[in-house]
């Protein structure tokens, strides 16, 4: 029996008015793979993540998560299929404590409703105890527990990035999408982040797909790379080969972010 790929994208095309942001994009990600997506600014990388997480509905093409099509699903339903993500610009809930940021992300599997919340029924109390405990334990694993009652904005920038990744992981996804996780980090934090992502990959049963500008981060982390430019796939394959590909060098030429 063959198991379905964690993520499969077939002939994905996305138009915004007259602009074709993505054209005919294809990918298959296996269980526990770590893949990368690179390309110059405005190439369409974030758009692909927005399509996968259900934030946009594709103009053409199909997306399957664990073999299930995502067409027509609202983002929270796509999340329920096993996708979680971070954002290029950090999108934590800043007027909520660090612990609550994790707890609210458990909404999809709360298992109690409005009247339970008012009546504080048994299922309410059990669920709240459980997610409180789990959220705290998860923060502990990532050494963020001492900030549990702080607001995210009080954390150093690097830790905010980390918290956003932890919040995504708390969804227990089978596919984790990281959109430029190293953006805005200094070199020390960047190495810390590379270690963190590798550690997550080794310890959790999760496929990771990363968008990143920093070539060195990608070379260290990913086994497979895909390069897009103006929505077209211009190269793909093992990281070392892709780096030497003339088309990639041209696309990046003059881009100081390499």
């Amino acid at each position: 029996m063959t198991t379905a790929p964690i993520l499969e994208i077939r002939n994905l095309t996305q138009h915004f008015g007259g602009l074709t942001a993505i054209s005919d994009f294809n990918i298959k990600l296996k269980n526990n793979q770590m893949a990368g997506l690179i390309g110059p600014n405005g190439a369409g990388k974030t758009t692909i993540f927005n399509l996968v997480s259900g934030f946009y509905q594709p103009s053409q093409g199909e997306i399957f998560i664990n073999g299930k099509p995502t067409a027509g699903l609202k983002p929270h339903k796509v999340t329920a299929l096993g996708v979680a993500r971070t954002f290029q610009n950090i999108r934590l809930w800043n007027q909520m404590t660090v612990l609550d940021n994790i707890k609210v992300a458990q909404h999809g599997k709360l298992g109690y409703g409005f009247f339970d919340a008012l009546m504080r029924t048994k299922v309410y109390r059990e669920t709240e105890d459980r997610i409180n405990h789990e959220a705290y334990e998860l923060l502990k694993v990532f050494e963020l527990d001492k900030f549990a009652d702080d607001f995210p904005t009080n954390l150093p920038y690097g830790l905010q990035r980390k918290l956003e990744i932890v919040r995504a992981l708390s969804e227990k996804p089978s596919l984790l999408l990281l959109d430029e996780p190293a953006a805005g980090l200094n070199t020390v934090d960047m190495h810390e982040l590379i270690r963190l992502i590798r550690w997550i990959h080794d310890s959790f049963d999760v496929t990771i797909w990363i968008i990143e500008h920093h070539m060195d981060v990608m070379m260290e982390l990913c086994d497979e790379l895909k390069v897009i430019d103006f929505g077209h796939t211009i190269a793909e394959g093992p990281a070392l080969e892709v780096q030497k590909n003339p088309a990639v060098i041209t696309a990046y030429l003059g881009d100081e972010n390499i």
Partner: peptide, 22 residues
Amino acid sequence: TFGKGVSAICQDEVAAEIMSVN
């Protein structure tokens, strides 16, 4: 936690929807 979804929507609705809040 159910009701805190309300302030998640207030602070960032996109993040709320993507982080599994209906």
